[in-house]
């Protein structure tokens, strides 16, 4: 990245050079601060290009833009894409469906966010250390694989075409016809949540395990002297000890309520389950990339950005109110 000295004489020359400039800097301290800035400058340009420049593209939401035609030759449509959300009954129905999916999956995600807490508390009750280590190692592993690979697992285990589950059930005579689990729209929200739990539970518990380890052992000792049972210890010492951590993560979960991601829903989506799996990010992709409606896709993105910022600030204020400290 930065041109580091290779060593040897080049290095010495550089050192001398820097010694010289550093003496100069003491005399003119303003140069030092500019130098630091100029070293960061190329990276700040990258930040500008990849994060701020796309904001300019929001103007596409006000045009009837189609890829290939320059913007100057494109009709300016004002707020048409925004108003069509409410005025066009078909579009409104679509967006409401997508919002319903987004909210349902996020709500299930927030409900299941207590599972890592339970996982961590009960794991600490396991006294056999090697068992504990094996559990931790193997349950964290799924967090590090891609959703494409998760889909590959899902395909092998649940495919209608010689998937493990179907073959097992058929060989036991429990079903006659293989079940098309991946290609059905039954319980889509729930199955997406369960895959999320499978992938993230062990990983999510790590922060709570760290929090539990940080609880003062004297608290347990004191409670035990007072005659507290194992469950009372969990409830009255461990749970309060990890509540702050849980609260912060809950707040972050609320802040990210409409950002439930893309990849998982994209790889699991198919013609059958699209009506229930299509969350906002997937919808923007389908509208913009698949159907080439850049204007409407951008309009949705703008609204989504605004709502997420509002949620973020609301969550932040809530956090300040409850624990006297924000999350951003």
């Amino acid at each position: 990245m930065s041109n580091q000295p290779g060593g040897g004489s080049k290095m010495e020359a550089k050192l001398n050079d820097q010694a010289y400039t550093s003496v100069a800097m003491k005399r003119y301290p303003f140069k030092e601060k500019h130098k630091l800035f100029f070293m960061a400058f190329p990276f700040l340009v990258l930040v500008f290009i990849f994060s701020y420049l796309p904001l300019y593209g929001w103007i596409y939401a006000f045009y009837d833009y189609r890829p290939g035609i320059p913007l100057s030759q494109t009709e300016f449509v004002g707020l048409q894409w925004f108003t069509s959300l409410v005025s066009n009954p078909y579009q409104m129905e679509e967006v409401l469906r997508v919002l319903r999916n987004t909210f349902a999956i996020s709500a299930l995600g927030i409900l299941t966010s207590v599972l890592p807490v339970i996982f961590a508390i009960f794991l600490m009750e396991i006294k056999n250390n090697s068992f504990k280590r094996i559990v931790q190692t193997l349950t964290t592993l799924p967090n590090f694989i891609s959703w494409v690979l998760v889909y590959s697992f899902a395909f092998m285990l649940f495919s209608v075409d010689n998937g493990l589950l179907n073959n097992l059930l058929m060989s036991m005579g429990l079903i006659e016809q293989p079940l098309n689990i991946l290609g059905s729209d039954n319980h889509t929200w729930l199955s997406m949540t369960l895959w999320g739990v499978w992938k993230g539970l062990g990983w999510g518990a790590i922060l709570y395990i760290a929090a539990i380890t940080g609880i003062d052992p004297e608290l347990y000792e004191a409670a035990r002297v007072d005659g507290a049972s194992r469950f009372r210890l969990m409830w009255h010492v461990t749970v309060p000890g990890i509540m702050p951590t849980f609260f912060v993560l809950l707040i972050l979960g609320i802040a990210g309520f409409i950002n439930n991601g893309f990849e998982q829903y994209f790889v699991f989506s198919n013609a059958m389950n699209m009506s229930h799996i299509e969350v906002l990010d997937l919808y923007v992709y389908n509208v913009g990339v698949v159907n080439n409606n850049f204007g409407f896709a951008t309009a949705i993105s703008i609204l989504k950005s605004i709502v997420s910022l509002v949620l973020l600030f609301a969550a932040n204020s809530l956090s300040k109110l409850v624990r006297g400290e924000g999350v951003i």
Partner: peptide
């Protein structure tokens, strides 16, 4: 970290 212009504007950049 807290905003995202969206897929299409990013793609056009």
């Amino acid at each position: 970290m807290y905003f995202n212009a969206g897929l299409i504007p990013w793609f056009l950049v």
